[in-house]
Computed example of a mutant assay.
Amino acid sequence: MDHLAAYMLMALMMSMLPGTDTVLVMKNTMAHGSKAGYYTTLGIASGLIFWTMIAVFGLAVVIARSVFLFHVIKYLGAAYLIYLGLRAFFTKSTFSMDSVPDHNKKSTHAYVKDSFFQGAVSNVLNPKTVLVYVTFMPQFIHVNGNTNQQLIILGFILTLIAAGWFFILVYFLDVMKKWFKKPVFQKFFQKCTGVLLMGFGVKMIV
Rank of each mutant, 00 (worst) to 15 (best):
I168E: 07
F180Q: 10
F185W: 13
Y133R: 04
I168Y: 07
H142R: 15
V175N: 09
F185R: 11
G164I: 00
V170I: 06
F136S: 01
Q150E: 11
L173G: 04
K181C: 12
V175I: 12
F185L: 12
V143E: 15
P183E: 11
T159G: 06
V134N: 00
F180D: 09
V143M: 15
W179G: 13
L160E: 05
V170S: 05
H142C: 14
Q186F: 11
T135L: 14
F167L: 11
V184H: 14
V134R: 07
L151E: 01
I141T: 04
V134P: 02
L151P: 02
I153M: 09
A162P: 12
V134C: 06
V184E: 15
N144A: 15
M137W: 02
D174M: 05
K182S: 15
Q150R: 06
F185Q: 09
M137K: 06
P183L: 08
Q150P: 06
Y171C: 07
P183D: 12
I141K: 01
L154S: 02
V175E: 09
N148P: 09
T135N: 14
M176N: 11
I153Q: 03
L154P: 01
P138Y: 01
A163W: 03
W165Q: 02
I153N: 03
K177G: 07
I161P: 00
M137I: 14
I157R: 04
V175M: 10
Y171F: 08
G155S: 05
A163Y: 05
M137N: 02
K182A: 14
I141S: 01
Y171Q: 10
V184R: 13
V175R: 10
I161A: 01
F166I: 07
M176P: 08
I141M: 08
T147Q: 11
F140A: 05
G164N: 01
G164D: 04
F185V: 13
A162W: 11
T159W: 02
M137A: 05
I157N: 03
K181F: 10
I141Y: 00
G155W: 01
H142N: 15
Y133W: 06
K178W: 11
G145F: 12
L154D: 01
Y171M: 08
L158F: 15
T147M: 13
F172A: 07
P138K: 03
V134G: 05
F180V: 11
K177V: 13
V175F: 08
F180C: 10
Y171W: 07
F136M: 06
F156M: 09
G155T: 04
Q186W: 10
F167P: 04
I161R: 05
L158K: 12
F167V: 11
V175W: 05
